[in-house]
């Protein structure tokens, strides 16, 4: 039973990573940049939702939507102001700018909300009692359940969106070949903005879900999940949407199992160790495309 509890916790944490990793991987796929500020968008999303429920007394679902709207605007703004001027100048320059944006968001949050951790009230607090199965031997929190459900919905939605809608197809076209997509009449700038918007909205959802399960909210809350989700995206093969989902879930499960069965201090080392081994066996991640070299 403990095994099952751990598995469910792992799947739930992994779902959060998967949702964050989706944002990473979409942005990477389309603009070939590592958006290190993504983790901090999660944090902003969580803070907005926190303010919505605690200060404005909004219902939980309204505050989540508010967080998504703010993060979407933030994502588009960041892309337009900081990343667009550097498009096509090589990934390192954009990487450092992303780090600058990450510093900016963290310190802005520090100024606005202070460094003391805020206690995030779970958006599922209406469901007070946990689900109890097998005569109380297995308890599942509503947070874990809803996180899983949310992740599945997001995954189905994203798969449909990238596969069957015009904008989604445009995104895939731009990530495949920027120049050719432009020749086909796709507005590359709008498409990239759109990708950032969706990625940031997903980050807001992830932030709310993460803080519902782990309620301490600080300006640095997003940093470590951001790195883990980035790892997850690479784990599954960066640029690949199913890869990000698979990678996220696996990283979450490995982390929880490592913490439960091996060593709580070394759980991060275990996650990264597994990542290294997987990449050595499969150098482009689990579902990543093989890179072919041309002379």
């Amino acid at each position: 039973m403990i095994f099952l509890t751990n598995l469910i916790n792992g799947l739930s944490l992994g779902s959060v990573y998967a949702i964050i990793a989706l944002g990473y991987t979409m942005v990477y796929g389309i603009s070939k940049m590592l958006n290190f500020a993504h983790g901090d968008v999660i944090m902003v999303g969580a803070y907005i939702s926190f303010c919505g429920t605690s200060y404005l007394n909004l219902p939980a679902w309204v505050s989540v939507i508010l967080a998504m709207i703010v993060c979407t605007a933030l994502g588009v703004l960041i892309e337009g102001l900081a990343y667009r001027p550097l498009r096509g100048t090589g990934s390192l320059a954009v990487l450092i700018t992303a780090i600058g944006v990450s510093y900016f968001l963290q310190n802005a949050a520090l100024l606005i909300w202070g460094s003391a951790p805020k206690v995030f009230t779970s958006v599922f607090e209406k469901f007070t009692s946990n689900i109890s199965l097998f005569g109380g031997e297995l308890t599942i929190t509503w947070e874990a359940l809803f996180t899983l459900v949310a992740a599945v919905l997001v995954m189905l939605g994203m798969t449909f969106f990238t596969g069957h809608t015009k904008v989604g197809k445009a995104m895939r076209a731009v990530s495949e070949d920027n120049g050719a997509a432009q020749l086909m009449g796709i507005n590359v700038n709008t498409t990239i903005s759109m990708t950032f918007a969706i990625g940031s909205a997903l980050a807001a959802i992830a932030g709310v879900l993460l803080c519902s399960s782990y309620p301490a909210l600080m300006p640095t809350t997003g940093a470590m999940p951001g790195i883990k989700a980035f790892t997850a995206a690479v784990f599954g093969g960066i640029g690949s949407i199913p890869g990000a989902m698979l990678g996220g879930i696996l990283i979450g499960v490995i982390e929880i199992f490592g913490r439960a069965y091996i060593s709580s201090e070394l759980s991060d080392a275990i996650v990264f160790g597994v990542l290294i081994i997987v990449l050595l066996v499969k150098p482009t991640g689990l579902l990543g495309e093989k890179i072919t070299e041309k002379v």
């Binding site: 590592l34 991060d268 990264f272 990542l275 150098p283 890179i291």
Partner: peptide, 24 residues
Amino acid sequence: KLRGDYLAIVTLAFGEIIKNFMNI
């Protein structure tokens, strides 16, 4: 043995692993 961004993430991973081990 790795290339590009995959190499970068593995160096990140090793950095985190070293930090973790220094903790114990």
